[in-house]
Nucleic acid binder design. Structure first.
Lengths: 249, 249
DNA sequence: GGTAAGTGCTAACACAGGTTGGTGAAGGCG
DNA sequence: CGCCTTCACCAACCTGTGTTAGCACTTACC
């Protein structure tokens, strides 16, 4: 299973070989994007659904005066909103953080998947609901947590998400972000990001160098940041389909 | 058309009488909630989809130490995530701000609507995409805007949303929030909310009394807060279905 | 009718985090 | 080779926002 989307969906349910094949076939249209290149730009007409296969990408919005806020990260296996093509124009941009491979899934293929495969459909909807839940948690993050908690929380989340697609190495994962980008994510200045990083290092909670994050004390980091992974809805046993509603969509 | 959901969907597309009837029939299971009562509580098993018919409600998350962040508001016509029933437990709560009427739509009715009525289905997906877009804008709000801009932006958004369901009176709309709730929305202290409200009033941009918000200078407020309504995807002409992809889901 | 709780409002003070302006090291490139 | 850019890092100062506390008013309730 080298398709990271399949790897991720496996956190929610078990897919049949046929379903896995459909996913693989639908994600053949692949393009490589350079670091800092936009995958989609604000104002673009919305096309197919994008799937990050390799690399690291982000969603961001820019205010008229240039302030930029990163509102989401994509790790391999993440889809952008399943239904974007319903809207006419993008109200934000998606950019590759490092060199990345992105597949474009056509609306037709989305329909093919969701028409014929109820289990797969449930799994895809699960992934979009998780994405929304992450967005809400980010609002909590910038709204209620202070700089140290915020950064700790982000690091916990990213480790969990890399784990979910098997791209962690123990408590380490790739994190190819500059301090400016971290600042734009957390709603802080880059100077304060630096201070905060130093504090996390001083407390021997993490190391971050050469684009690799290592969480030395995961439990302490979770406690410090009030990190509760429920919002990622990753617990397999807790996410099994309930009832027996038939799903044609 | 007294169903606010129909009123809202009309911002995206025109529904047939048959489709309107299906919506009306699916939203018969109505319950009234008292002010400050929870419609759904964090940890609850997820039931059907909720639709606010009357009143004002919010989504919120509470940290272990009691800090609360409001992550979304519901105005009449707003649905909570169409697919919540895929998840096992709610990772946040939904609470009525004032006395409110809420309809519960069963998964079966959702299926009925989305199976047989492609135009209606598109409209429903549009509404969930808008909800997501709002969440992203809120991240930008707390992450990048200062207190004055933040509050101004929230007021602009709410006026636009009340307008979209015809519940405004010119540049006025209901806003039954205490300053503490505003603080929990904007990631500020209630004291600073008070200061900021005063500043907006001093600049003769708004009035807010007795639960009614009046925006005296909408253009100035929009400019001050870098408010760009694109993310609400309300422009009818801009939101027409494109292409002719058939929609069975 | 009196008390308590909730709310709006204000003032004084404290501090987290922003701003500005710098350093040096690493890497791309003419 | 040197130049330029990018990045991590650091120090000084400033300010937006939080904290604490107190008063006035309303509403709910005993």
């Amino acid at each position: 299973m080298n398709n990271p989307l399949l790897r991720k969906l496996a956190n929610f349910t078990q897919l049949s070989d046929e379903e896995s094949n459909v996913v693989n076939e639908s994600t053949q249209d692949v393009r490589e994007f350079a670091a800092r290149e936009d995958v989609i730009s604000q104002g673009d007409r919305t096309g197919g659904v994008k799937l990050l296969l390799q690399g690291f990408a982000c969603r961001y919005k820019v205010l008229e005066d240039g302030r930029r806020q990163i509102v989401a990260y994509f790790v391999p296996g993440d889809l952008c909103d399943l239904r974007v093509f319903i809207l006419k124009r993008m109200d934000h941009s998606i950019g590759a953080v490092v060199t990345s491979k992105v597949a474009t899934i056509s609306p037709e293929n989305i329909l093919k998947m969701t028409h014929n495969y109820p289990t797969l459909t449930r799994a895809l909807w699960w992934s979009t609901l998780v994405e929304e839940a992450i967005a809400r948690e980010w609002i909590v993050n910038v709204g209620q947590r202070n700089a140290l908690e915020r950064m700790a929380h982000l690091f916990c989340e990213l480790l969990y998400r890399f784990r979910a697609v098997g791209l962690n190495q123990g408590n380490s994962c790739t994190l190819p972000l500059t301090q400016v980008e971290l600042a734009e994510t957390l709603g802080l200045s880059s100077v304060h990001v630096n201070r905060t990083l130093q504090e996390l290092r001083r407390q021997k909670l993490i190391t971050l160098e050469g684009g690799t994050l290592t969480i030395q004390e995961l439990d302490a980091l979770k406690e410090l940041s009030f990190f509760n992974p429920d919002y990622l809805h990753l617990d397999y046993s807790d996410a099994r389909p309930r009832g027996d509603e038939r799903e044609g969509n």
